[in-house]
């Protein structure tokens, strides 16, 4: 049957017929459609929809988390731009890393990132998430976020003001319109 005896790897379990089915299926999966759409002007319309509906994952991690909450609230109100918080990663488009990434939190953060559906973007909010900030030399923090996540927007500040976060979103919108964001460039 083409099955390798005793091997536990994933490829070993795939039978030839399954491979054919897989090949057939990939032809009609959404990714193929997306690849096709990328070549057409329709992509501009899709990008318009995407950029105007950037739902972010509620995940306050530190000082920046408080500013993130304030950005969604009356004074600043990201809902004006169609940017609303979502609690489940399945429905979020943007992950805002709003604070210190520690060695203990990293696996959970990766998991959250993997749970989000494509296309997705990362915004690094605050110095801690960009370079460790005041805690760069600590024994428990991770400072090279770039190594783990395809970050599109860096917002410096400790913490950045809500206006800055909104500006970050606007920059991300510009990048999506210009097809320069890392998801569309395939640079992930």
């Amino acid at each position: 049957m083409g099955e390798v005896e005793g091997a536990g790897s994933e490829t070993a379990k795939v039978r030839p017929i399954q491979k054919i089915i897989d090949a057939h299926v990939t032809f009609t999966t959404t990714s193929a459609i997306h690849d096709f759409l990328k070549k057409t002007p329709l992509q501009d319309l899709i990008n318009w929809g995407r950029k105007n509906s950037l739902w972010f994952l509620t995940q306050p991690m530190g000082c920046c988390g408080i500013e993130m909450i304030c950005t969604g609230a009356p004074h600043y109100d990201t809902d004006r731009f169609g940017i609303i918080p979502r609690c489940s990663p399945r429905q979020a488009d943007v992950m805002i890393i709003s604070g210190y990434i520690t060695k203990k939190y990293m696996p959970a953060l990766k998991l959250l990132w993997d749970q989000m559906p494509e296309p997705k973007w990362v915004i690094c909010m605050g110095d801690c998430s960009i370079s460790g900030g005041p805690f760069w030399e600590s024994y428990s923090t991770i400072i090279n976020t770039e190594k783990y996540f395809p970050v599109d927007i860096y917002i410096p500040g400790c913490p950045p003001r809500p206006e800055q976060l909104i500006q970050g979103f606007v920059e991300l919108q510009k990048k999506i319109t210009a097809k320069q964001d890392r998801t569309q460039k395939g640079d992930t």
Binding site: H34, W48, G49, R50, N52, G82, P119
Partner: peptide, 9 residues
């Protein structure tokens, strides 16, 4: 916009 985004996710 929301609908377009949701459809293409």
């Amino acid at each position: 916009a929301d609908a377009i985004k949701l459809f293409t996710k």
